[in-house]
Design a protein around this nucleic acid. Structure first.
Lengths: 352, 352
DNA sequence: CTGAAAGCGCTTACAG
DNA sequence: CTGAAAGCGCTTACAG
């Protein structure tokens, strides 16, 4: 071993990292040849290449990522910056499942994820700017698109690729993995229509998110197509809010026979309120959720929801980002289709 | 602006990143002076320093992280590699809450997190080794310690600092943020003892985890101190398993009057099984969970659990890692204390 | 207080 | 097929 140790201030011994210079010296060839060999480029004989690879393996050589990044301007790292209330981030399995999906892909292509969870809006812009300027990442995956989302022009200005996990496809040159709300709305409405529901309510997430407004609009249109009416209430994704709005619906005049909730937490809240009010579920009111999750599965009765294939979607987003960054022309792609998970919280519409 | 654009293959215009050379040229000073000024080092007059800082601000200068990493051998990045089944990772809010806590700290000190979720055991060792050798991170935070955990000697050999989120304090030179099980066991047993429970059961997580075996042992000892008996069953953290073991307990001879579950998912399972068996909760059996979570809070009845202050613990772990990496001698630290959240799932012990 | 220079560990034209 | 050399953008002794 060429490894030589040096004593560090705190007594740690930092082992010498093997570099391409070490490999070159031991093999009596130039650093360039080593580099060519390692990177599968032309310029070395097969025999030399094999000798390099063997020695690299033997010595446990791994190229210094900073040096690669500096000279080749690629980091094999993608960035994700999430600007939601930490409390919400952790209650929603959504983000973690998406991350798992992304990681599956990154594992396969040996890339990495730089993650930042910033509480406040605005702070995320700073992080995007800083990471871009610092050359820390090759691109970003964006969630929770807003109206006139400032992140998209910012990243374009910074000249760094991105993929938006999106519900629509405006022509703004951003890469997009698109989950159209039409599909989920169709699944939910077909399910409810088949059960005889005509008068439903929708408690959405905040309208600041593009996807929430699109859901509202799509729900209205497709409900009309089926001769159904839909009341729309804007929620916050929070439990308390889902509970309060559901109470308002169920204790008001003409309560709906079914309620669609914008996320799992509000759906659990709706279920609880209905039960507490003595409103049978699904006898008197059906409860369905936009997103499936363990909460929906474990509730009692189980809550009917759409499995959005969150992990697969994360995977697909990462895959798309790499292709966009490599210069692929087609920057829009359809996300994997969701599937209805019918459970006990939805049943035949109550008779009036 | 000195910014000049170049056309990229895919039509993206990559803006020129401003470097210290740009700053030096514009200010007619050397790059060294710029570096000193930016890093708050001696070697420049206050006036020069201010001019540098002003221009850097004006041009939106951010130092290239690869260049800093290469020349200074620090990345301001910590690594986390989690090797658990993806399905489990996403159902447990634990990891996400921990990450949020860690991120809070990283935000404050402007450091970053490199994250990898590997499904399989063993693969995580490769990632630790690779990231170390590649110089990608300044240190690691480790979770889910095993017996004779190979990660700890590996990282020592690689000469890279780490902090183990730990339940004990062996003398192996690893940094440790310690949550002693004694504290949680005391909270749980005092609660149950006060309610008159004498005969309890514990469905733990897998014994491959050091903390689970420690919990079992501690529970046994402290229960004995209180004149209580405790039956121990090894679970897997999975819902199905929690359900099956609970069923076994409740339908067997001499069912316990209280069951302690090793995680939230198994606690929800236990609750469901008890209800389905017609065993009143807490009338006939009390259910308590080791870790609090939204699942416990939202269950009905709510499940008594210990709030392990997961976010604070994550924060503390990150903080400790930076101090350990900076050469602090005292590498062990106590994690923030947990708190009992008494809910409706626990009540007075049933009479025999 | 300031500057010229070497060096971190790679990649990449460019000559042979 | 191979090597010498420049360069990526910083930091850091070392001289002045």
């Amino acid at each position: 071993m060429t490894a030589s140790d040096g004593d560090e201030p705190n007594g740690l011994r930092r082992t010498h990292r093997v570099t391409i210079s070490d490999l070159a010296r031991r093999l009596q060839i130039s650093k360039a040849s080593v580099s060519y060999a390692l990177n599968g480029r032309a310029g070395v004989s097969d025999e030399t290449r094999q000798r390099v690879l063997d020695l690299a393996e033997e010595l446990g050589f791994h190229p210094n990522s900073a040096a690669v990044a500096l000279s080749a301007s690629r980091t094999r790292t993608i960035g994700i910056v999430i600007a939601r209330d930490p409390a919400l981030i952790s209650t929603e399995a959504f983000y973690m499942r998406t991350l798992v999906g992304i990681e599956q892909y990154l594992n396969e292509v040996d890339a990495s994820l730089l993650l930042r969870l910033t509480g406040e809006q605005g702070e995320d812009l700073d992080v995007l700017r800083r990471w871009s300027r610092q050359g820390r990442v090759d691109g970003f995956i964006l969630f929770d698109e807003h109206d006139n989302d400032p992140r998209i022009p910012l990243l374009k200005e910074l000249g760094i690729p991105c993929v938006v996990v999106s519900s629509n496809a405006p022509d703004d040159q951003a890469g997009r993995l698109i989950s159209s709300p039409t599909e989920t709305v169709t699944l939910l409405l077909d399910h409810l229509a088949a059960l005889g529901h005509r008068d439903i309510a929708h408690i959405s997430g905040p309208f600041m998110f593009v996807h929430e407004r699109l859901r509202v609009q799509t729900l209205r249109e497709l409900a009309a197509d089926r001769g159904m009416t839909v009341r729309q209430l804007e929620g916050s994704y929070r439990y308390d809010d889902g509970a309060a709005l559901t109470r308002q619906l169920l204790t008001g005049p003409n309560p709906p026979t079914a309620i669609v909730l914008g996320n799992d937490l509000m759906a659990v809240a709706a279920l609880r309120v209905a039960i507490d009010l003595g409103t049978p579920v699904p006898g008197q009111v059906s409860i369905v959720a936009w997103d499936d999750s363990p909460l929906c599965e474990l509730a009692h009765p189980g809550i009917t929801a759409v499995d959005q294939k969150t992990m697969e979607r994360g995977r697909a987003a990462a895959d798309l980002l790499f292709r966009v960054a490599a210069g692929q022309d087609d920057i829009h792609e359809q996300a994997p289709a969701g599937e209805l998970r019918a459970r006990a919280s939805s049943g035949p519409a109550a008779h009036r």
